[in-house]
Amino acid sequence: MSISSSMSADGKTLTIAVDGRFDASSLDEFRSCYEGAVCESPISFNVDLRKAEYLDSSALGMLLVLRDYAGGESATITISHCSPEVKKIFAISSFEKLFTIQ
């Protein structure tokens, strides 16, 4: 599994960890991680890219789709453990305005 997800103990934060490649080849896997998550109370998401080495623009699209799913403007999504290269890609695409990049 290159993508795995886990819910925090309080049931409020879903962490999705990406390992290796984050691009269109992992589209279904990524989507199934959060589509199963119950969204009754406001839930926050954490996309952990500690082990993500490779990323392209389709991953950016996937993150935006997640944001839309999580409530758009009201969504709370953190993208954590970004390498300098990944941060650069987010910066080019002005993602800091939409996500909390760590």
């Binding site: 490649r21 691009d23 080495e53 490779y54 990323l55 392209d56 623009s57 390498s83 290269e85 650069k88």
Partner: peptide, 11 residues
């Protein structure tokens, strides 16, 4: 530069 190069090649 592999991770940058991946993005370039992939695009």
């Amino acid at each position: 530069s592999n991770s940058l190069l991946f993005t370039v090649l992939s695009e």
